[in-house]
Amino acid sequence: MNEIDKLLNDYFEGLTSIEEEKRLKQYFESDRVKPEHQMYKTLFAAFSQEREWTSPPARLPRESKRKPFNLKLWIPLSGAVAACGLLLFFTTPFSRFQKPDYVVIVNGRHITNAREARCYADRMFFEAEKEMKESFRSVIRARQITQNMDADKIFEGVHKSITDRQTQEK
């Protein structure tokens, strides 16, 4: 029994190593295949052909371009921010943030800001003055009407106009 026959026997028993099977494949790819072994040539050729089947391209989702969290950068940065905050806290005058010691109540509304209270008062006084002027117009008009409703004046006027007309007719 030659080497190839022995290899083929071991091959079909499942006992050949990877190297021995490579030798068999090389034999069946060559032109030296004996007639009694021709029937197995196609079998090894089929295995070689299957080895050429390739996968489709793998589609992966795009990775996010977000950079990884850099702890080495953020620790000192957050420390600096905290230090600035503390500095501001201790150096800022508190009077601006203290509760005022007066309250102005305007029309039921509590106003603690002096400037705002002044502005509010000015606005209200202006609107009151405007309203007063508006309302006094009717009073002045009424006085005028009252003055014009004097009976003696009216009769005197009528008498005068009649007299004038009579004079013209003559």
Binding site: W53, T54, R59, P61
Partner: peptide, 28 residues
Amino acid sequence: YSDKMYRMARSILLDESGAKDAFQDLVM
């Protein structure tokens, strides 16, 4: 190992398009 994975899928499923879907599914 994509080619080996695909060929294995094709051998088991005996279906080329099914093997492609299975391969892509596993890759994901």
